[in-house]
Design a protein around this nucleic acid. Structure first.
Length: 423
RNA sequence: GGAGGAAUGGCAGAGUGGUCGAAUGCGGCAGUCUUGAAAACUGUUGAGGGUCACACCUCCGGGGGUUCGAAUCCCUCUUCCUCCGCCA
């Protein structure tokens, strides 16, 4: 949620920046300002009435104490009208506050100046590329074929148990999956991130805190009996650790990492691009989350990008980094770098990480603040990134490391798997 | 699941109808003293709205009610604790 004060002060600049998202937000922003003005005038009027009421009450108290009950009773009559007024003003005020909030929810984050204009993923800007694309044998297979050939992932079994998009990992496949999780967590904690284990279900307040609600309501599994949501990413529970929190500037930056399964309904997805591990309803991911002082957040973003690079380098996977264009940028993000691994057998890029700076968009909603060096309270910046998402990394490894003998395991993972070949 | 008890500022903890945004202690911050630190002493120290700044308004787990007036009384929800039951 955008900061109201910022809209008041920079409406034009915000509107211009939002055009990069192909969004004409002028009327929304104007609505915000109108509702805000209405809110303030109602608030002022109600406050005045309440002030009168308060001082009358005090007078009545004093009169009773000094035995002037009759005078007190006279004053009491005056309060009736004021009470009615303040009540109706309060109701009107609440309605306006709700309306204001609803409009604010509709406005996405303001893109950073580095964000290129554009409408789709075609317009994303490649900013980095590294790693050699391996020469595969003739007849190299996509990962879903490899999974079957070596009996390490069973998609049909998942269909039987749950439905499409819930694969069963078997034997060395399961072990490799677990090895990756541990390896990622080890790399992240070595870089200073504290490992956290968090709930996999969250309440609605948490969903609103990080911005999944109301924007992506339909994309989350909702347990209606208890009004809880299955998390689509660890970002939600980890970032919400800091909901309604005021940190000290010495506490910053906060760097957390966590492994969780992620659940996404992916309503509306279909077709060849969702085959195998490419798109799942349940998948594993290791996430990194940072809370930063505003002045440091972009440096932190760069640090996170470098960190993920280091991991992919160790895994010896060919990858590229894209700076997302306005049209592809997530609702809550100000600047996002996507990492894509090249899947040689599918001859396409697969997104494996997304690293974003949300600036104050989440913290405003979360009420995540910190006390700066001067004792002033201000909103912190939040960032997060995948480090890394499992299925497509797994797909990349299976496809790029296939040989005649079987699938080789990246050297760095062998200590974790205990084997160096899937055959 | 059953029976009781509780929820107050960063923490502990007082406050059972008005002068309470809230005693006191700890912690934090600033200062005095000291070569420096500690100790001691002095001052200061919740959040939000509003204002140029004041004034003023709201908040004592959430919501509702009684009352001229609620941290305090009533209803309700949530959470936590104790005991019993069940259980990975």
């Amino acid at each position: 949620m955008l900061v109201l004060q910022a809209i008041r002060e920079n409406k034009e600049a915000i509107s211009t920046a939002l055009k990069k998202r192909n969004l004409d937000a002028d009327s929304l922003l104007s609505q915000v300002l109108q509702l805000d003005e209405k809110r303030r005038s109602l608030q002022t009027a109600m406050d005045g009435t309440l002030a009168q009421l308060n001082s009358l009450s005090k007078e009545i108290g004093t009169l009773y104490k000094t035995g002037k009950a009759q005078e007190a009773n006279l004053l009491k009559e005056k309060t009736t009208r004021l009470k009615e007024d303040s009540k109706s003003m309060g109701e009107e005020l609440n309605a306006v506050v709700l309306q204001l909030e609803e409009v604010l929810y509709l406005i996405p984050n303001v893109p950073n100046e580095l964000v290129p204009a554009g409408s789709s993923e075609e317009d994303n800007e490649e900013v980095f590329r590294e790693g050699d694309v391996p020469k595969l044998l003739k007849g190299a297979l996509p990962h879903w074929e490899l999974a079957k050939k070596y009996d390490i992932i069973d998609f049909e079994l998942g269909v039987k148990i749950t439905g499409a998009g819930f694969p069963v990992y078997k034997g060395k496949g399961a072990k490799l999956q677990r090895a990756l999780i541990t390896y990622f967590l080890d790399r992240n904690t070595a870089a200073g991130y504290t490992e956290m284990q968090v709930p996999h279900l969250v309440n609605a307040a948490s969903g609103f805190g990080t911005g999944q609600l109301p924007d992506k309501e339909g994309q989350m599994y909702h347990v209606t009996a208890d009004d809880l949501y299955l998390i689509p990413t660890a970002e939600v529970p980890v970032t919400n650790i800091f909901r309604d929190t005021i940190l000290n500037h010495q506490d910053l930056p906060v760097c957390y990492t966590g492994y969780t399964p992620c659940f996404r309904r992916e309503a509306g997805s279909y077709g060849a691009h969702v085959r195998g591990l490419n798109r799942l309803h349940q998948f594993d991911k290791v996430e990194i989350v940072r809370v930063e002082q505003p002045g440091n957040s972009y440096e932190a973003l760069t640090g996170m990008v470098e960190h993920v690079k280091g991991i992919l380098r160790e895994l010896e996977l060919p990858y590229r980094i894209l700076r997302l264009c306005g049209g592809d940028l997530g609702f809550t993000s100000a600047l996002t770098y996507d990492f894509e691994v090249f899947s040689t057998a599918q001859d396409r890029w697969l997104e494996i990480s997304s690293v974003s700076n949300f600036e104050t968009f989440q913290s405003n909603r979360l009420k995540l603040r910190f006390k700066d060096e001067n004792g002033k309270i201000q909103l912190a910046h939040t960032l997060n990134g995948s480090s890394l998402a499992l299925p497509r990394v797994l797909a990349g490894i299976l496809e790029n490391y296939q040989t005649e003998e079987g699938i080789r395991i990246p050297k760095v993972l062998v200590p974790y798997t205990g084997f160096d070949l899937i055959d």
